[in-house]
Design a protein around this nucleic acid. Structure first.
Lengths: 202, 202
DNA sequence: GTAACAAAACGAACTAGTTCGTTTGGTATA
DNA sequence: TATACCAAACGAACTAGTTCGTTTTGTTAC
């Protein structure tokens, strides 16, 4: 019997090796439920894989969590560095857009923050690299004169991050958000975040 | 035989009714491990109470979580309204101080944000009340001319919240914080947060 | 004071369901 | 044959929640 992965004449559609399907399913699961709340059986089922395979590729649940976190950090960093060059307000806007389009990334970071304090062996280095690069970018902007040089670049970086993600963490905004993105609100918030950063650097 | 609650001549030391000891232990447990990660047995043990008593006072685990969240929100709101009146930067400073002295409150809010989306029956109203009050305060400050009136008060409120808590959520700062508060850093961050808010309202 | 009573609490065992991680037997592919 | 895989099941530990007999504590009446 032949493989029927691509029924029509469509491109081969690389059948997504089992390992990656598992990682992808784990990504969804961990972002939604965190480490303690995630269920291995659910990950395997959603990956259309067997648990036997899951444990063939990842030793522990925490191992898989760590792999997801690592992948997320890499993708997040690369996505962020796209809209990085120009100005800090533009960067904030790009970051905001990304967080709206892909909330899983910030969720995963929050989970790691709350319950992953121990199992951040490879991820930790990634975080530090990413952070260092961002701080370098801020320093460069300060040197170029477009950003107030009296700010501690480390602090300014954190502030931008905090401003962009404020609606995700502010209780009223976050809990009221039972499936109600509302394009107009999103746009208005984006504008406020950008404006806030503009004021900071002025 | 006489009561031997206070061995020495110290004040009676109201022996903390079981129910409250349970609530207090649950507070610590949930703030540390979240809803899914918390262990009922551990709560009972740390409360020096029996599980029988725990379930006599609270129906479910989620019930207890909800009670903890509610208590936290009430205390947080009242603590916050202390340093509320004056200026927005001062308010931000007070909020920052509180978050440093009592990180459990923001942790609990984060947990609720991530995994408590369903069980926020009484808490939700509290959050909305607290939010409404904060927004009113911002509007008053705008009317008095001390805060730029062109800001959406709702947004400004969220921004202040995001600025104050940015070091809690920024990955590098949060994960690097393996028991390293460092008074000087804390003070510098506080100053930056206050300064950031000053720039926003100017 | 003390006997009687009830509420609050203890503690230990127990139920029933869940969950991680492992194993086993079997199929398909190269 | 060897590798990758699956479906199913299993075991052991864990967990929420319950039950029950006993003890402590506070109150009320005598």
């Amino acid at each position: 019997m032949k493989r029927v992965d691509s029924p029509s004449g469509l491109p081969p559609k690389e059948p997504a090796p089992t390992r990656q399907r598992i990682l992808e399913a784990a990504r969804v699961e961990f972002a939604a439920y965190g480490l303690a709340g995630a269920r291995i059986d659910r990950i395997a089922r959603n990956a259309s894989a067997s648990k036997e395979r899951l444990y063939a590729y990842y030793r522990h649940k925490a191992d898989l969590f760590s792999a997801v976190l690592e992948l997320n950090l890499i993708e997040f960093a690369s996505a962020v560095e796209q809209g990085a060059g120009e100005s800090l307000p533009e960067f904030a806007g790009a970051l905001y857009d990304h967080s709206v389009a892909h909330p899983e990334y910030l969720r995963m970071i929050d989970w790691a923050n709350l319950e992953g304090q121990d199992l951040i062996n490879p991820p930790l280095a990634l975080i530090e690299d990413f952070h260092a690069e961002r701080v370098r970018a801020v320093i460069a902007l300060q040197a170029s004169g477009s950003v107030d040089a009296s700010w501690d670049p480390d602090h300014l970086n954190a502030l931008v991050f905090g401003i962009v993600s404020c609606w995700i963490h502010e209780p009223a905004a976050a809990l009221a958000a039972d499936r109600a993105p509302d394009p107009a609100t999103v746009a208005a918030r984006r504008a406020s975040a950008v404006r806030a950063v503009e004021r900071l650097i002025g």
